[in-house]
Every structure is written in C-alpha cells, then in structure tokens.
C-alpha cells in the first residue's frame, strides 16, 4: 500500500511518515503544494493524506487533481481549520475522511486502516486478534463462536485497539475517538475507565483472555500473548 502524505510542517510530516512506515505502509512525502502536485501526476498512490493549508496552494486542489487522475484513491484530509466548514468542502470534493489537528497518530492509523478496508479489502473485513474476531461490516464481535454484545462505544474502542495493537493509547485519545470535539465529557467522570472495565468483563464472561492492558498513568494497550 502506497501512501502520499502532504503536510507543510516538516516535523509533523516526518512523524506521520514514521508512524505509517511502522505499520508497514510505503510512504512518500511532500511538504509543499508543487511537489505534491508533481508526485500525484507522476506516480500512483492508494491513499493521500492531505493538509488543506499549504504555503503555495490549497490541498483542496490536490484532491480535485487526484480525483481526476485516479478516482479510486482514498483521501484523508488533515486540517487545522475548523471542522465545521472545511469539512463539508473537502468531503464534497471526494475526500473520504477528515481529521483535525492536533490528532493522535493512533487516530490517524485507525482512519487509514478503516479507509483501506473500505476501499481495497472488500470481503476481508474481519480482524482477528488472539481469540477475538471483529467483523467491521456487520460490527459483530465474536470469541470463538460466541457472539459478544457490545455497545456502540465499546465497539469503537475495541476497533481502535485492534487497529493499533501494541501501541499505548491514552484515555484522551480514546475519548476523542468516541466523542470527537466533546471529549471533555470524560473530564468529570471516568467514562473511559468504565467502558474498558465493561469490555473486559464481557470478554472474560465469553471465555477470552483479557487483551487490554492498563499502562500505569498513561492509558491502555492491546497486548496479544
């Protein structure tokens, strides 16, 4: 899978590249509009991660270009602009997903994986970690043959972990994943903790080994033995 990351901030660009390469994706980088435009025309990519605000052009124009050259390419917009207005424009142009700065790398990975599944892996939308199987098209979770009933949030959390095995995921990152801009809901009460507790309980009842490990003071981590 080949991904082109377009972002004018070099440090952020390198971090995104490093994260995606760890996930075994081939990653190319462009830190300005002209370079991105050139690459889009010369090579073919499966996914574009595009920052809208570039010093020498608008990421929206790159989306327009790629949609002409290769309509099948997936596009994830990253923007610092408010989610309320640019989101619509980006999505209208054919972007598949939208993520606002600042974001956690774990979140970006989830979005990339989810987009790849939707675009290229049709039919193979089953993720297995240990003895737990997750079906992304039916949103069903099974331990062996036993169906585990999960609430919407619990499912989202589990998918987040499944997309980032081995990575430390903070409570904030989870809260943002579930509630987006309303993640401050988690401030006054340990909602995340309760969700995780319930998830663990359900897996234990279904006979699976608990895959979610607490990382003291920081968050959680999916660990499959």
């Amino acid at each position: 899978m080949k991904i082109l990351v377009i972002e004018d901030n070099r440090e952020l660009l390198d971090l995104i590249a490093e994260t995606l390469r760890k996930e075994k994706y081939v990653c190319e980088l462009a830190d300005r509009f002209s370079l991105a435009e050139e690459k889009v025309h010369l090579y073919s990519y499966d996914i574009l991660v595009v920052d809208i605000n570039l010093p020498d052009g608008s990421g929206l124009d790159i989306i327009r270009a790629i949609k002409k050259i290769n309509p099948h390419a997936g596009v994830i917009v990253i923007s610092a602009r408010d989610s309320l207005d640019n989101k619509i424009e980006g999505l209208e142009l054919g972007a598949d997903d939208y993520i606002t700065k600042p974001f956690d790398m774990a979140e970006l990975v989830v979005r990339v994986k989810s987009l790849l599944r939707r675009r290229y892996y049709s039919g193979s939308d089953i993720i297995t970690q240990g003895d737990i199987t997750l079906n992304t098209s039916t949103r069903e979770v099974k331990v062996g043959a036993t169906l585990v009933e999960l609430t919407r949030s619990e499912y989202d959390i589990l998918l987040f972990f499944f997309s980032n095995p081995g990575r430390v995921i903070s409570k904030e990152s989870l809260a943002e994943h579930i509630w987006g801009d309303h993640m401050d809901l988690a401030d006054s009460f340990d909602f995340i903790y309760s969700h995780i507790k319930n998830l663990r309980k359900k897996f234990t009842v279904a006979g699976a080994s608990d895959p979610i490990k607490a990382v003291y003071g920081m968050g959680y981590k999916l660990e499959i033995n």
């Binding site: 901030n9 952020l12 971090l15 610092a80 700065k101 974001f103 956690d104 790398m105 774990a106």
Partner: peptide, 16 residues
C-alpha cells in the same frame, strides 16, 4: 494547531 499537533505527536511517540 499544527505546532500543537507536533508536540502531541512527539509526546505520543515517546510514550510508545
């Protein structure tokens, strides 16, 4: 937001 993203991503990176 861009610089915040850099700080946040680096912190996240170090946590891992």
């Amino acid at each position: 937001q861009t610089h915040l993203a850099v700080i946040r991503a680096n912190a996240e990176f170090l946590l891992n």
